[in-house]
Design a protein around this nucleic acid. Sequence first.
DNA 1: AAGCTGATTGTTAGCGCTAACGTCGGGGGT
DNA 2: ACCCCCGACGTTAGCGCTAACAATCAGCTT
Lengths: 336, 336
Amino acid sequence: MTKSNARLPRLEDVAELAGVSHQTVSRVINNHPNVSKATRERVEAAVAELGYRRNTAARSLVTRRSQTIGVLASELSQYGPANTLLGVEQAARNAGYFVSIAALKSVSRESIFDAVRHFMDQSVDGIVVSVPHSETLLALAELKLGVPVVAVGSLGNDAVSGAMVDQTRGAELAVGHLIDLGHRRIGHVAGPQDWIDGVARAEAWSAALRTAGLEDDLLMTGDWSAGSGYEIGRKLAAERTATAIFVGNDQMALGLLRAFNEAGVRVPEDVSVVGFDDQPEAGYFTPPLTTVRQDFEELGRRCMDLMLTAIGDGDGVSATVVEPELVVRRSTSAPA
Amino acid sequence: MTKSNARLPRLEDVAELAGVSHQTVSRVINNHPNVSKATRERVEAAVAELGYRRNTAARSLVTRRSQTIGVLASELSQYGPANTLLGVEQAARNAGYFVSIAALKSVSRESIFDAVRHFMDQSVDGIVVSVPHSETLLALAELKLGVPVVAVGSLGNDAVSGAMVDQTRGAELAVGHLIDLGHRRIGHVAGPQDWIDGVARAEAWSAALRTAGLEDDLLMTGDWSAGSGYEIGRKLAAERTATAIFVGNDQMALGLLRAFNEAGVRVPEDVSVVGFDDQPEAGYFTPPLTTVRQDFEELGRRCMDLMLTAIGDGDGVSATVVEPELVVRRSTSAPA
DNA sequence: AAGCTGATTGTTAGCGCTAACGTCGGGGGT
DNA sequence: ACCCCCGACGTTAGCGCTAACAATCAGCTT
């Protein structure tokens, strides 16, 4: 790190210092077996002395592998996607990979292709797709791009592997909790229905209600934002048909709480609210939100595990589904 | 994108098809001036026909530039840092750069060095540092690493350039608003004092109060989290010395609101609260939060502007300070 | 008409690395 | 004693690209 102007040392320089050929140095660097202990140590000493670091570009050129994983993400400013990225980054760096990102401002066939092209220009060794739009997977499957693709938030398809939090289980936890409390009229504020998680939660909510012999007719759809939750909350406060609401994420739940508060609807006395995600702030809403925790970092790590196996240097991966967890706080109680 | 098994076309292939030398193709690709219109068009046609894309590794090897910007970030799961990254990524991709990230789980000399080494291994052309710890800049200045560094959230130093939101102005806006409303006892919940923004806001709060001839003795320090805001809020609710609180960020403000609500302290009737950041949820807190908006994406874009000029292909940049904006909602009012 | 200029194109030599193959010697089997 | 094999190295040939220089040719000038 010190010498800023001088040329960086190459294999050749190390070889000279160690009194071997550059190829032997390469072998040491790459942990090839057939190097005697003595030479290995001598080379390692030379590497240390010169502060040698291998040139990624040269290596990539010949191996045709860039040691880089591309992460294609949307909604990166949101808690879930951001933490997933964190998990991926951590696992990738541990495995010696670089992480290149491309954020999508809007999800369209065009923008996806553009980002993928960006990654191919970089010859990434794999792409993690954290764009939980149903459309995305289709778009990706369409262009067969010779590198492994791992999808976040779905189990993938025949062309793409995937890691996800068990949405069905999560919705069951939420709905089950409400049913256990004695609620019979349980509504759902769903996320956009072109989002994988949005439909998954809505379907699981519906299924859980039917299984319990309850009606699943109180369904509304937001756009994940607190604002949309607020609008829906106002309607809900006016109607007062449900005694409990299962909301698709914590942010919409926040909007709901706000609307209920304004309308004089008490939570949980008048209506119970359950969120989804358990973002760090959820425990400080008014009232503290009962919600379903998703471990996004773990999700990201799992993605990277899948990626490594797909690329070929993986160490064998077990599960692809992360279990969610119910966190009970003070936005739920038995109905009046 | 179609041919997955066949070798990707190289300059040579394009050259052959166009009936020119590979160097001429290179010239076309790189927009060198001295190429006749006819050949240029012929080459471009060949490029299009073969779907040629230049090999980054080979190019990097010879030019010693990777077309990659490293973004060193911490707290990526938070609204501010995440959006800054978004701004950087967008600007970088527009300028034809790749964005590589390294997230810091904890900020230490060790972890910073590690991440920087990671970037140097990748021969990044520049590093954007979004780790608003005072310590970070020192650590970075220490190791002179032959590439430009741009710091987010500070104006940098002699070795590092920087882009920031005008924290002083932001704090003035917040405190000024409270003073205008008639408040005389205005407290501050600061962020950690080893964070640049944390001290900047605290100092500006203090300065603004003194200028107005008011006391600046009501200072408490949190860790940016809603939890810490909650703890502080409980104390504040018990003491009831201040009639208004300027909080270092929206999340701590959320905790404060929660604590006040529990303690029966009404906002804004009993005490006014101003936050900082204006994250999208702030408008849906109970009550909706008056806060100071920071345009993080713009901040990220500015960083990239600075980076481009530092690297040398910049188009001349004006300001490095982004103006904050006061957003008045319902958590502030005149004192009783 | 000879020579010069500048625009356009081609040729050559690496960038630093790894894969493939060549070499060399010593130990074990016969 | 001979041969073969295999471990431990070295040598060679690119990977695909760009920089630097060489070559060619048309259009001028004198």
